[in-house]
Simulated scan of single mutants.
Amino acid sequence: MKWHKIPSSAIRTKTPVQLLQLGGQKFCLIYHQGEWHATSYKCPHAGANLADGWCEEGKIICPFHRHSFNLIDDKGTKGQNNAIRINRLESRKDDLYVELPESMINKLLNLFK
Rank of each mutant, 00 (worst) to 15 (best):
K75W: 09
K75F: 12
W36L: 12
N70I: 01
I61M: 12
H37R: 07
T39P: 01
G76D: 02
C43I: 09
I86Y: 03
Y41M: 00
G58L: 10
H67R: 11
T15A: 14
Y41A: 01
A48C: 12
L19M: 10
K75Y: 09
G76Q: 03
R85Y: 10
A48G: 13
N49F: 01
F64T: 03
G58I: 08
N87E: 04
K59D: 12
T77K: 12
F64E: 09
L89V: 07
A48F: 07
K78L: 14
K78N: 12
L19I: 03
C55F: 05
G79Q: 01
I84Y: 01
H65N: 05
G47S: 02
P44V: 08
S8L: 14
P7S: 10
I6N: 04
E56N: 07
Y31D: 03
I11A: 05
N70H: 14
R85W: 09
K26I: 03
S9L: 12
T39D: 00
D94P: 03
K14F: 04
H32D: 15
S91A: 11
F64M: 10
K42I: 09
Y97M: 08
H32P: 02
L29Y: 07
S91G: 07
G79M: 07
Q18T: 10
H32S: 15
I86G: 01
K14A: 04
A46R: 11
N70Y: 05
N49P: 05
A83V: 04
E56Y: 00
F69P: 09
I11R: 03
I84A: 02
K14N: 05
C55T: 14
H65Q: 06
R85F: 10
L29C: 08
D73A: 10
A83I: 03
E35I: 12
C55I: 06
D52P: 01
L89Q: 00
K5A: 11
T77S: 12
I61H: 06
K42A: 11
K5T: 13
K26P: 02
H45C: 02
K42P: 00
W54D: 04
D73H: 13
N81A: 12
L50G: 01
I11T: 07
R92M: 06
G23Q: 04
C55W: 02
R12A: 15
I72Q: 11
W54M: 09
A83K: 13
I11V: 14
W36M: 11
L89P: 00
I11E: 02
F64G: 00
N87R: 06
A51I: 06
E35M: 14
G24P: 07
K93A: 13
K59E: 15
G76M: 06
T77I: 10
E90K: 15
Q80K: 12
C62E: 02
R12G: 09
R88A: 14
S9H: 10
T39S: 04
S68C: 15
D95I: 08
P44G: 07
K93N: 14
Q18R: 05
S68I: 07
